[in-house]
């Protein structure tokens, strides 16, 4: 109970600190040649933690799906659903911030870089996961079928990355991302990582609460 009260506030606090750090002069991003890059490059401090959280969220879907298939229990299903929804939103933000970065760095919105493309595949996978859920009405069947897909979707991700890597290197690799150097830059990134992980955790807990209340409401409706 206590954790649920403290968590949102501590998330808010660390988010504010993280944002302040991003705009601190010492967080300026340098290009590969050591030149100072424009302020819009600071989006990378969002981009990396978002990607980390999105991947982590999908991993949680995978684990919850396995758990559901093994032992059943609605809580695993709620876990998977909540994590998938947050993951899809965060993964969408990864794509958007990636595109903003790409536009300012290379003048194009999209490059078929293995990491960015894998994020696109992930987004498609879990958008499909949510679509599958919306197509089944009976709660138990929905939980079972989406758990099967939760497993299948995640298992293929490493191979997706490998194959895209192989395929995109057919084309010359023109683009290299800027280097991450300097203690301040790394600590800013770390603080952001923590902030976004906390944000994910609080959102997950809230989403689970909402789903539980939803269940209860359904139950009362039925009883009435």
């Amino acid at each position: 109970m206590e954790v649920k009260k403290i968590l949102p506030w501590s998330t808010l606090a660390i988010m504010i600190i993280a944002i302040c750090l991003i705009f601190h002069p010492a967080s300026t991003v340098y290009g590969p040649g050591g030149e100072v890059l424009g302020d819009y490059y600071r989006i990378f401090y969002f981009h990396v933690p978002l990607a980390w959280v999105a991947y982590f969220a999908f991993f949680v879907v995978f684990i919850s799906s396995i758990k559901y298939l093994q032992e059943g229990g609605q809580k695993w299903d709620i876990f998977a659903l909540s994590s998938a929804e947050i993951g899809v939103i965060f993964c969408g933000l990864v794509l958007v911030t990636g595109m903003i970065w790409a536009k300012s760095a290379w003048g194009v919105y999209w490059i078929w870089d293995p990491r960015l493309t894998t994020s696109l595949v992930l987004w498609l996978l879990y958008a499909a996961y949510l679509m599958l859920r919306s197509a089944v009405h009976e709660p138990e069947r929905r939980a079972r079928l989406s758990s099967v897909f939760g497993v299948v979707a995640f298992v293929g991700v490493p191979l997706s990355y490998l194959s895209i890597h192989l395929w995109s290197t057919i084309h010359p690799e023109v683009f290299k991302s800027g280097g991450i150097e300097g203690e301040f830059i790394i600590s800013t990134l770390l603080v952001n990582l923590v902030a976004f992980t906390l944000l994910y955790t609080s959102l997950l807990l809230m989403r689970i609460d909402v789903e539980r209340m939803n269940e209860k409401a359904q139950w009362f409706k039925k009883g009435a």
């Binding site: 498609l124 996961y129 679509m131 599958l132 979707a153 895209i164």
Partner: peptide
């Protein structure tokens, strides 16, 4: 096969999983 919109749903959930096959 047990979902309401199976004809639409199958391609939507199958193709993202097939990325490694198609790409390689």
């Amino acid at each position: 096969v047990n979902t309401r919109t199976r004809e639409i749903l199958l391609p939507v959930i199958l193709f993202p999983v097939l990325v490694p096959v198609i790409v390689s």
